[in-house]
């Protein structure tokens, strides 16, 4: 299955209205040639980000840059704050009672908490894939285009085109093309997660947040999803929370190690795993704590 994925190279379409989203004046012609032109090299930057639920500090003072087109793995034991960190990046924590933040998160150089910012569009630009597949109660095809419809990116016949393109992109097209009108709940867990990935890709995100995306999948599906993530990376910035250290090593360019609400260490994945600077990191990556 992993071989399948590497041969069918998915073509990630650039986000729709990309040029409009970049800050400052952008030459439309140059933007068409290189969508990233004139944009900061780091897609996401956090500055002194401190997160609290009520009086409890979950994360303190995180300074981090996520390079455009890179894959960053967030590792650390349960309760270390990595999921909270991830969910802050598309403001999913805003609704949680008692959530407070200090510092800032910059997406393409602009704060995600800019007053008057279009939250729905922020979430379109920063997509998310969850721990377990979460298809919507609608047909397979409608699942893929649910976000596309909500953001009015396409309509009518175009929706079928988008659905096919995105299902091909995740390698699901051949197995579901004859039952696009069926319920997604009869698909296997791995297929459901790919469907959710297709759905997230369909709205043309720039950043994709993945919260333990393979923790509920079997090894073969996991391998397939990992191969897919590696192929998505140049066009998308991926941030992956994982408990699977081997997965972090296989997939990511950069790794961040969280422990007890602190960002203990971060760096290129190979360095972090082979030459950890911090003794805590060393103990964790060698399996002695966690």
């Amino acid at each position: 299955m992993a071989d399948d994925a590497s041969t069918t190279s998915p073509q990630v379409a650039p986000a729709v209205t990309e040029a409009k989203l970049a800050p400052g004046p952008v030459d439309p012609v140059l933007a068409a040639i290189d969508p990233d032109r004139g944009r900061p090299a780091d897609a996401v930057v956090t500055r002194g980000l401190t997160l609290r639920f009520g009086e409890k500090t979950i994360l303190s003072s995180i300074d981090m840059q996520f390079a455009r087109g890179s894959i960053t793995a967030l590792i650390g034991p349960t309760g270390s704050g990595k999921s909270t960190f991830l969910r802050t990046l598309n403001r999913m924590n805003d609704k949680v009672q008692g959530f407070r933040y200090e510092g800032d998160v910059l997406l393409d150089g602009a704060s995600i908490w800019t007053p008057g910012l279009d939250l729905l569009n922020l979430r379109r630009r920063v997509g998310m894939l969850f721990q377990r597949p979460n298809p919507f109660p609608m047909s397979i095809r409608d699942n893929v285009v649910a976000g596309v419809k909500a953001h009015r990116i396409a309509k009518g016949k175009q929706l079928d085109v988008v659905a096919e393109q995105r299902l091909r992109e995740v390698g699901l097209w051949d197995s579901v093309k004859d039952r696009l009108g069926d319920s997604p709940f009869r698909l296997s867990g791995g297929q459901q997660q790919l469907l959710c990935l297709a759905r997230a890709l369909a709205v043309g995100p720039e950043v994709l947040l993945l919260d333990e995306p393979t923790s509920s999948l079997d090894p073969i599906s996991t391998e397939y999803v990992e191969a897919l993530l590696r192929q998505l990376a140049p066009a998308l910035t991926l941030i992956v929370v994982t408990h699977n250290l081997a997965q972090a090593r296989r997939v990511s360019h950069h790794t961040m190690f969280f422990y007890d609400g602190h960002l203990v260490e971060h760096g290129p994945t190979d360095d972090l795993f082979e030459r950890p600077k911090d003794p805590q990191t060393e103990r964790y990556v060698t399996g002695r704590i966690g």
Binding site: L120, R123, R124, M128, F130, Q131, P137, A150, A200, V203
Partner: peptide, 22 residues
């Protein structure tokens, strides 16, 4: 379950869309 609703929110749906689509 909260997960499909969160998925819809994370996709940039409004509260109304989450309610009537999910």
């Amino acid at each position: 379950p909260p997960l499909p609703k969160e998925g819809a929110e994370a996709l940039g749906m409004t509260d109304w869309e989450v309610a009537h689509r999910v």
